[in-house]
Design a protein around this nucleic acid. Structure first.
Lengths: 341, 341
DNA sequence: GTGAAAGCGCTAACAA
DNA sequence: TTGTTAGCGCTTTCAC
């Protein structure tokens, strides 16, 4: 239990050379003679020397750590993103740490500030922070946004708007004429995108779409959302995300409302469980792992970025989405639905 | 966009005092006169001074960060643990970072070493590391284990053995006489506990139990596991965890094997989805959030712990589990099952 | 090729 | 109460 970790000095003393030589032998092997290099490295190994990262950081300003802040680590939607980001970060020699802001802007800020000083870069997924605070964070370290676009920030988003287009197209093709969108948190940029695109495409198709909510994007809140949807004339319901949609499905089943017979249900994200809930959910899937890799690439390349007034030209990557049709959508009941409202 | 962050020196110069005074005014407000304190703090605020955590750390050795390493961040089983740990860490003024070791011991070690030097303590969930490596990590920083017990380490485990007892009791009560356990990774301590307890209780009840596997604890591997189970004479199948159990359920459904009519299925963990898969899964639930809080408590209290030879007395907390009976278990088919094998 | 020395931003003696 | 000074462990000029 060597409780006083071995330092560069220990190695230097043991090897009979100067600390600077040890430092070089270890990090710049070619700037030292083969003989001493071997010798020093052998000693270092024998002493089980580990460089003190903190000290290195103080000098270089680099921690070789990157942080990813997600709004809800329990939302399976984030899995692919995390996995992709992890892989890419590791490939580049960085360690990825993950933070959970629990759908709370204050917590997100606190976390970002804490972590911000300990990492080389920050990716904020579905950030709820106002632009001003975002910019302040950016002053410290490079920041990349996922599923949010803000001028001056590099970002990668999955194409929710196009997902909405595909949903409306699908529903219209089935014969639906009245839709209801059960919205997510007001602070959610994605919710805005999804709702707006849904409206636009519904309007373009000449059908009706109403919006309800906001609802918190959880299975638990699905019950309330289902009830609200039932109080409308809609024959198809689009939930902000799959978590909410699954909750809706559960409530509907308990109420004896047949899906998709009486009501079609659609979600977004294609999360774990959306394929084995009852009925399997029609939803919008997106390339989460590529997104994870992309955010890290952006982060790493933005280390060299200038921060002039030209900042509006930051890369904004948009990844395609695809509608995955399962069993929760079908042609609407021909007549008036029989459920009470 | 202050790109050269403001330092203590900047504040000191601006305030016309020494850096040490600024340092005190900010961190030890009572060791400085009210006048200067106000003055310095005002300047610091105006300049938007943020202490450099790295520099603080180098000196104090504290980062105010704690790390939690989970084997699979996409396993919903870990959610409660993460949430509980997060909450407790924050309450104590620490930031929790989460790492994912993807069920891989090498990755776990790499992560632990990287993070280990950047945090004040480490909790390893379901660690797959050999004891020797565990001890080595422990030399650096306090380490707490979750769902693994090793002499000399503080730990908290959920009582898998008792969960196994409850499963056997339940199955025997229903009339099952032949069980099969579809085991998890060989490196998994929890798998050992579950399998061993299952055997013991089956034997005590005078019924047969065979073990198959190992299987990787994923939905994907459930198909293979299901096929193996079908090749036995068992009327009830116990999967290492719910992820595997859900995969088994899917395969069985595709094969037309009725659950629980022809075969009963049980899992462990009570994860997201286990209540809405088809049929809802009988499983063992455990207090994950309390476990998360407990690991952090242990970590924080072990900072002061000695490391004498007396280390065997480290606290080992065991949290109770409870069988949650849903629809995937029932009385066995009276006659010989009709499926081919 | 190697060593001496400065210093990253901060805190904690020690003086004044 | 405040200022001066010495480092924490490391990298990196700059001499030799």
């Amino acid at each position: 239990m060597a409780h006083t970790p071995v330092t560069l000095h220990d190695v230097a003393r043991e090897a009979g050379v100067a600390v600077s030589t040890v430092s070089r032998a270890l990090s710049n092997p070619d700037r030292v003679s083969p003989r001493t290099r071997e010798h020093v490295q052998a000693i270092a190994r024998r002493l089980d020397y580990r460089p003190n990262r903190v000290a290195q950081t103080l000098l270089t300003g680099r921690t070789q750590m990157l942080a990813l802040l997600v709004p809800d680590i329990t939302n399976p939607h984030n899995f692919g993103l995390i996995r992709g980001a992890e892989a890419q970060a590791r490939a580049a020699g960085y360690t990825l740490v993950i933070g959970d802001s629990q759908e709370d802007a204050d917590l997100e800020l606190a976390h970002a500030e804490r972590l911000g000083s300990a990492v080389d870069g920050l990716v904020l997924a579905a950030s709820k922070l106002p632009e001003a605070q975002l910019r302040q964070l950016q002053g410290h370290r490079p920041v990349v946004l996922f599923n949010r676009q803000v001028p001056g920030f590099p970002s990668v988003v999955t194409d929710s708007a196009d997902g909405s287009r595909q949903i409306v197209e699908h529903l219209v093709a089935l014969g639906h004429r009245r839709l209801v969108y059960l919205g997510g948190p007001q602070t959610s940029w994605t919710d805005g995108e999804r709702g707006r695109a849904l409206s636009e495409h519904a309007q373009a198709a000449g059908i009706e779409m109403v919006r309800r909510g906001p609802f918190s994007p959880t299975v638990e809140h699905g019950a309330a959302a289902a009830d609200v949807a039932l109080a409308t004339e809609a024959t198809a319901l689009i939930a902000f995300n799959d978590l909410l949609a699954i909750g809706v499905l559960q409530r509907l089943a308990r109420l004896g409302v047949d899906v998709p017979g009486e009501l079609s249900v659609v979600g977004y994200d294609d999360i774990f469980g959306s394929d084995f809930c009852r009925p399997p959910l029609t939803t919008v899937t997106s390339p989460a792992e590529p997104a994870g890799r992309a955010v890290i690439d952006l982060l790493l390349s933005s280390r060299v970025a200038s921060e002039g007034p030209d900042a509006e030209t930051e890369p904004q990557i948009v990844l395609p989405t695809r509608l995955r049709v399962r069993d929760s959508t079908a042609v609407p009941a021909s007549g008036r639905r029989t459920r009470g409202h």
